[in-house]
C-alpha cells in the first residue's frame, strides 16, 4: 500500500465514524467521534489523522474536523527509529 492509499483508507475510516455520529442527537456528535477515536485508534493512526488535518485535508468530513479539538494528539511521534525506551537489543 502506498502512502496515498494509506491516507485514503485512514480518511475513509474517520469519515465512516463521523457518518455514524452524524445520525445521532446533535449534542453527542463531535464528542462521539472524538471519544471513539481516542478509545480505539492507536497513536500512529491519530498522528496520521493530525497530519491530514494539519494539511487541511478537504476530503475529511466537517464533523471530523469539529471533533479534532477533542481528539488526543499523541505526544511521542511514531517515527521509524524511535527506540521508545528499549535500551539495547538482547
Amino acid at each position: 500500500m502506498s502512502h496515498d492509499q494509506g491516507r485514503e483508507k485512514l480518511i475513509r475510516m474517520a469519515n465512516q465514524i463521523a457518518t455514524f455520529f452524524m445520525s445521532q442527537p446533535e449534542a453527542d456528535r463531535a464528542k462521539g467521534v472524538a471519544t471513539h477515536i481516542n478509545k480505539f485508534w492507536e497513536p500512529r493512526m491519530r498522528t496520521h489523522l493530525f497530519d491530514c488535518l494539519d494539511e487541511g485535508a478537504s476530503d475529511l468530513l466537517p464533523l471530523v474536523i469539529e471533533a479534532s479539538v477533542m481528539i488526543k494528539r499523541p505526544t511521542v511521534p511514531a517515527k521509524v527509529g524511535a527506540s521508545g525506551g528499549i535500551s539495547k537489543p538482547l
Binding site: E42, P43, R44, A78, K79, V80, G81, A82, S83, G84, G85, I86, S87, K88, P89, L90
Partner: peptide, 11 residues
C-alpha cells in the same frame, strides 16, 4: 523481537 524494537521502536 528485541532487535526490531531497538531499531524501529517499542511499538
Amino acid at each position: 523481537f528485541r532487535r526490531i524494537q531497538y531499531q524501529y521502536g517499542r511499538d
